[in-house]
Nucleic acid binder design. Structure first.
Lengths: 136, 136
DNA sequence: CCGGATCCCACACGATACTG
DNA sequence: CAGTATCGTGTGGGATCCGG
């Protein structure tokens, strides 16, 4: 159903079935899209409320126009985000998260808050690892 | 604590604080590591039980040696995986998920099973999008 | 069996300039 | 305001050979 066992997921992902080349594996196919540098950040922003193009730019200061446009298009393509053009003058465009997007985001939020909560442990682990590397 | 609000996470991620350049943002820092092509698959495999190098290769048939080695090293560096060398002959190396790794994985599993469950909807959304694109 | 070292390429991403 | 178009680059990742 909705919470699958690791083994199930693995058989979905490891492409042991011929019919699933790498790009048809459900897990990989979805993950590869949100694995981009900006997708998660934009989903994060849009999870609260709809935003316009320029507003998103300000929310994520160091994204380039190009990547903002492109990432939003990809999110729209996968059905996570809805794009509405208001023919005002000058025109404005609103991006709004769909139910599918919210559904995905609720899972992503779990990972992101985990990341925020355990960042310290991870940085510590890295330093320890890098230190014991200097035995070279 | 453990489940943060979107707004909290966004302020953690958008680098509006000077002290957090892009690579110091907790969310981005952690996400960028697991966003790789293989990290999630390996965590998936190791979540069940420890595996040896060659076993992992067979579980994920289309990974190259190079990326298997490298990804495992990164996972080890971040503290998700423990590496133990058995000085047998020929040597064998076991990779085992740490408590920290299991903790992260429990969150990732949520995303992955979501992906498996909703893959159909997403593919449908894509086809629809691509079709309405042909009005060009 | 478990990798390290090297070569090479595709593509994600950034910077800049231009349009309706 | 909300984008497209073009160019240039860093690096993630594959293929192959080599070593303990």
């Amino acid at each position: 159903m909705d919470q699958r066992t690791p083994r199930e997921l693995l058989s979905f992902s490891s492409c042991d079935k011929q019919e699933w080349n790498a790009d048809n594996c459900p897990v990989r196919d979805v993950m590869n899209q949100i694995a981009g540098k900006w997708a998660t950040l934009l989903l994060l922003a849009l999870s609260e409320k709809p935003y316009r193009f320029g507003e998103l730019r300000r929310l994520v200061p160091d994204i380039s126009q190009r990547m903002l446009t492109q990432t939003l298009r990809d999110l729209q393509r996968d059905g996570y985000v809805e794009r509405t053009v208001f023919p005002t003058k000058p025109p404005s465009v609103e991006y709004k998260m769909t139910p599918l997007g919210h559904s995905l985001f609720s899972r992503l939020q779990g990972v992101m808050s985990w990341a925020a909560a355990h960042h310290g442990e991870i940085r510590a682990a890295r330093e320890k690892f890098d230190a014991s590397e200097l035995a070279a």
